Structure formats: structure tokens, C-alpha cells
Computed example of a mutant assay.
Amino acid sequence: MNWASKYFINGLIVIVPIAITTFVIINIFSFTEQLLGQYLPIHFLGLSLIVVLFLIVIVGWLSSHWLLQKVIGYGERLVGSIPVVKFIYNSVKQISTAVFESQELLKHAVLVPYPHPGVKALGFVMPELSVPLADKFTEEHVCVFVPMSLNLTSGFNIILPSRDIIPLDVTSESALQYVITAGAIMPRSNDSNN
């Protein structure tokens, strides 16, 4: 029965992020459609998409002004005082910030000795180590994300000496294709046009 629970957990890991994302997107557009249907005489396919994108841009623009930054800061402090909500909100915010602000995420493909010396796995260099982690090492170490084949949503973050990393001169897209296809499509060089 051990294999069944393992596959059940693996299935949850794959399905839950997809289900949550789908649920959130469908509900946002459904809510927008309902709201627009009540207050606007005009209605056409794609109107809710245009309105949602417009609202995201407006909120982004407003959040760059000091007054709304103060309001957002107050709201975050309020949310930070609620035990369980604080954990969920902070986790989602940190992940969102890392994904949306970092242009370098999953850009630098490397080979690393993983899962043991003598074997090489393709991974991606992650942001610089924080001071509490970096201070534990006598030489420079780097964090590398080694994704699992066929599933970029799971993998392992490993910290290893930078001397053990072999940089690859490949496009990030082809490195991701290599991982997603379990090696069926080999990484292409940066100079390759194919």
C-alpha cells in the first residue's frame, strides 16, 4: 500500500497547483463577467479579460505611489497579525515576487554532480544565497534547482560549491524542453538558430 500513497501524493503535487490556478482564473473572470453584466450595457466576448488586465495595470501603477504603498503596508501588517493567514500570505507573496520580479529565474542552465559524485544532472542557478546560509561555508557556494523530468513544479534545491558547477552555453528554453521531455529533446547552443 506504500506505493499507492506515494502515487497519491505525487498526483496531488501535480493536480493541486493546476486546480488552484484554474479555480482562481475562472472565478476572477466569472466575477468580472457578472459585475460587468450588471453595470454595463455593452457586452462582448473578451471584455472581462480586457477589464481584468486593465485593473492589474492600474493597481500596479497606483501601488508605485506613496499613498497606496502606505495603505498596502498597513494591510500587510494587519494580515501579518493573523497566525495562519500570515504564513499563507507571506509564502504566496514571496513566491510571486521571486517569479515576477526575477528575470533570471530558470535562465542559467548548469550541470551539477547530483544525486551523487560522478553523475551529472541539469539544473538552474537560483538567486544568491542569503547571509545566514552563505556564512556557514568557507568557500563560495551556489543554490541550484534540479527539476524532475516531465514536471517542472517539483525538484530539489541543492547548495554546492561553485567549483562543482559546470556552466552550459545553451538557451534556457531548450534546457527547459530537455527537462520537460525527459531528455527526448537535447539542449541547443546559444548560437544555434534551430
Rank of each mutant, 00 (worst) to 15 (best):
L62T: 09
I82Q: 05
F156W: 11
S48K: 02
I18K: 04
G73M: 02
G46K: 06
E101L: 10
G183I: 00
H108W: 05
V179M: 13
L12H: 00
A19H: 01
P115A: 11
A175M: 07
Q103T: 13
F29C: 03
W61H: 06
R163D: 12
Y178D: 02
K86E: 10
D135F: 02
L62V: 14
K70V: 10
K107H: 09
I82M: 11
F124C: 03
H65R: 14
I15T: 12
P41N: 12
W61M: 13
I56D: 01
G118P: 09
I26N: 09
I185M: 09
L105V: 09
V52N: 06
E173F: 13
S63Y: 07
N27A: 04
V131L: 14
L111F: 09
G46R: 06
P113V: 01
K120L: 15
L45E: 13
A98V: 13
D169K: 11
P115G: 09
H141A: 02
T21W: 06
T138S: 13
L35H: 09
H141K: 04
G123Y: 03
T32L: 08
G46E: 05
R188M: 12
K120Y: 11
N194L: 13
V170I: 08
T97V: 14
L129K: 07
A121P: 02
L36Y: 05
T97I: 13
I180Q: 10
L160F: 06
F100N: 08
E101N: 15
P115W: 07
